[in-house]
Design a protein around this nucleic acid. Structure first.
Lengths: 212, 212
DNA sequence: CGTGCCGTCCACCGATCGGTGGACGGGAAG
DNA sequence: CTTCCCGTCCACCGATCGGTGGACGGCACG
């Protein structure tokens, strides 16, 4: 196996998706699929066993999600390049994937040719981004840096999203109501809003809070 | 073509997904794929031309989304059964799909066997739901009926999500602040919450407000 | 060893919100 | 035609929130 061809593994929890990738790459002599997995843990075993050139991984997966899987692969098997292939093109997903160390980020509407090219580029160590993804990344760079919330501010914000009053939040976090208000005012400033409701909405848009 | 076998069309905007479905069904003699489309409009033309037994359609698509496409097919080509095959399993998506007249709702982690069985069942006119989907539908039925918000209440709620104060909402909708409060109190009751922030979060969960 | 940031706390005030109770016209449904 | 619901409006009150200004210990980084 592997005389000249690229060796890759496919990681996606959707049966149909894995079949799709495999079908698209079947005709491609230069690429050999050496394994497939339906979750992150299984993916790590595959990478351990086969030492592939490229791992194609989805973001949303059970057991171990794509971001964690990517981080693990990058840390433990640096020879294997991780190429994310997913449906999600929100700022947060992209940011997390790239931060975790993926060398590329593709969307599932990629054509066969683009997919093949991307895998080759990734194997050579080149960064490959879907146009829509590149656009978002640039837009994000251009925006003034948004300073992240502290852990405590996030706690307070979560409680706010649960509909608690400041006094109730104080009881939940075992701090004084005055402290709750301090955290709130600081996170309002960071999110550039001036009331709790907008804060929750903006935080969801930015992926700071779980999106319902 | 079509001597005994089921004739189906595949509608999905993701190249990889279409390839996956086709690959999974290729080995199946009883099913013949007579066409594929990447958006709703193209799908309608396919159905018009080939009069398939089953249309496998994704929900999120450009040009004409899955719900609209489903509704069109059901209304104009009642012989063709629509089977939704998608990644999304939120209450709202499911509800919309089923309301639009789909005979089944599958998730993309379906195995080959399940997919084949579902297509046959759909062609016979039987309803087929992925277990996770069925579960959600039942849970929804069991829940006390959630009475829908009136148009005005939705307007107010949208403004609240934008972070406006009651007075500002009044100006935007050209009504008195007192009226705004009336609408708010009524929608609080409907959503079973007691503050504006929670109302926004719950409304997003239920798909009443756009999810960020 | 200071400087800065984080998390904590406090007091105080005006603005806003949640909640009650009532009222009225209009349209749809019975 | 009457009843119900929607949308509109009003007054009033206590609770909550937004906002200011300050304070202090702890820890990290230079």
């Amino acid at each position: 196996m592997g005389e000249g061809g690229l060796r890759i593994v496919v990681v996606d929890d959707h049966t149909v998706m894995r079949a799709g990738v495999i079908a698209l790459l079947a005709a491609e002599d230069s690429i050999e699929i050496v394994g497939e997995a339906g979750d992150g843990r299984a993916a790590l075993e595959l990478v351990e066993r086969y030492d592939p050139d490229v791992a194609l991984v989805d973001l949303r997966m059970p057991v171990l999600d794509g971001v964690a899987t990517t981080a693990e692969i990058v840390a433990r098997y640096p020879r294997t390049r991780v190429l994310i292939l997913t449906t999600y093109d929100t700022d947060t997903e992209i940011e997390r994937g790239v931060e975790a160390g993926a060398i590329g980020y593709l969307l599932k509407d990629t054509t066969r040719e683009q997919l093949v090219d991307a895998i080759h580029a990734a194997a050579r160590g080149e960064t490959v981004l879907a146009p829509r993804v590149a656009e978002k990344l640039v837009a994000r760079m251009r925006r003034p840096v948004q300073d992240p919330l502290t852990e405590r501010e996030t706690d307070v914000l979560n409680a706010v999203a649960d509909g608690l009053t400041n006094a109730e939040i104080g009881r939940r976090l075992v701090i004084a109501e005055a402290t709750v208000k301090t955290h709130l005012l600081r996170l309002f400033a960071k999110l550039d809003v001036n009331d709790r409701t907008r804060a929750v909405v903006v935080a969801m848009e930015r992926g700071i809070l779980e999106r319902p």
